[in-house]
Simulated assay, not measured.
Amino acid sequence: MDIKKKLGTGIASAVLGLTLIGGGTYAYFSDSVTTNNTFAAGTIDLGVDPTEIISVDNIKPGDVITRDFELQNNGTLDIEKVLLDTDYTVVDANGDNSEDFGDHIRVEFLYNADKLDEVIYETTLAELKEMTPEAVNENVFYPLLGEQGLPVDSIDDLVVQFQFVDNGEDQNQFQGDSLELSWTFTALQTEGEDK
């Protein structure tokens, strides 16, 4: 055999050997299994009952109106914090207001119907409107709900007292006026945890 044939046969043998070795690395036993996994998000569902906390007519300086309402956790996740955002609009019947009607409405958040003399926090509607929702939580809801917040399926009673403050001065500018109050409650979840 000449050198070319020997060289060609050698190369062909080497390629065949490499092919067999390479092909052999793919020959193995195997098995596979598929798992079915689920991520289901929980829900935050804060309820307030009743949804109209106060509606009163013909108030005068010195009048006190007490109302109670429930904070309800109707979701599947615990609520850590409840925030309250206050907004209101004054309808000036005579166009003669030089002061904000909200400065003359005192608000007292009370613990519950059994302890009406225990005030959690006292302010005016005007001051409450300027407070951040986080500050309201720290001053009103945290003292009421504490570290536990509002667990799933729990209900907490809250009593609020409004007073048209009689400041001993002429308050005629408020005759016939109305104040439309909007409270927006926001619930926040507890911190994430290892599951």
Rank of each mutant, 00 (worst) to 15 (best):
A113C: 00
T124I: 05
D78E: 13
I79A: 08
L125H: 03
S98C: 00
Y111N: 13
K81L: 01
G75A: 07
Q72S: 05
D96Q: 08
K115R: 13
P61D: 10
T132V: 01
S98M: 05
Y111F: 11
T86D: 01
L71I: 02
V107A: 10
D114T: 14
N74Q: 13
V90K: 11
L83T: 04
T132H: 03
F109P: 06
T76W: 10
Y121C: 07
T124S: 15
M131K: 14
D78A: 12
M131D: 13
N112L: 03
G95V: 11
Y88P: 04
R67Y: 06
D117Q: 13
F109I: 03
D63E: 05
F109K: 06
D103H: 06
L128T: 05
N137I: 07
E99D: 14
G75L: 07
Y88G: 01
E118D: 13
V64S: 15
I105E: 12
N137L: 03
K129L: 09
N97S: 15
G75Q: 08
F101T: 03
R106K: 14
P61A: 12
D103E: 14
D68M: 09
E108S: 15
N137P: 00
D103R: 10
A126Y: 11
P61N: 12
E130W: 03
G75N: 06
E127V: 11
E99R: 12
D87C: 02
